[in-house]
Simulated assay, not measured.
Amino acid sequence: MMLVSVLAEILEEYTAVLVEVLRQLFHSAPFPRRIRFLILHNLPFVDRPSGVTA
């Protein structure tokens, strides 16, 4: 059981790092603005600005 909790924590940290890398990649990607917004808006674990509601 302890191994499962450790693995879950590691995966959570890995996912957070992966999302940050994807955010940086798509933020400067040569996609149309609307496509970039949709991609960035739908990433999990993303801190949304206070003015944006889901």
Rank of each mutant, 00 (worst) to 15 (best):
L3W: 00
L7M: 05
D47M: 13
T53W: 07
N42F: 03
G51F: 15
P30L: 10
S28W: 00
L38K: 06
E13M: 03
D47F: 03
V17H: 01
L43E: 06
A8S: 11
P32Y: 07
L22A: 14
V52F: 11
R33P: 08
A16W: 00
M1D: 10
P32S: 04
V17K: 04
L38M: 09
A16E: 08
L40M: 14
I35R: 02
E9N: 00
R34P: 02
L40Q: 06
E13A: 09
V19P: 01
I35Y: 06
P49Q: 02
A16M: 02
L25P: 05
V17P: 00
M1Y: 01
E20A: 13
S5R: 02
A16C: 04
A16P: 00
V17G: 05
A54R: 08
A8C: 04
V52Q: 05
L7W: 05
T53E: 14
P49T: 13
A54D: 12
V46N: 09
I35P: 01
E20R: 05
L3K: 06
A8F: 01
V21G: 00
D47R: 13
L25F: 06
F45L: 15
I39R: 00
H41G: 07
V17Y: 05
P32W: 03
G51V: 15
L3A: 08
L18M: 07
T53Y: 09
S28I: 13
M1F: 04
S50H: 14
P32Q: 07
S50G: 01
P44F: 11
E9W: 01
E9V: 10
A54Q: 10
V21W: 05
P44H: 03
R23W: 09
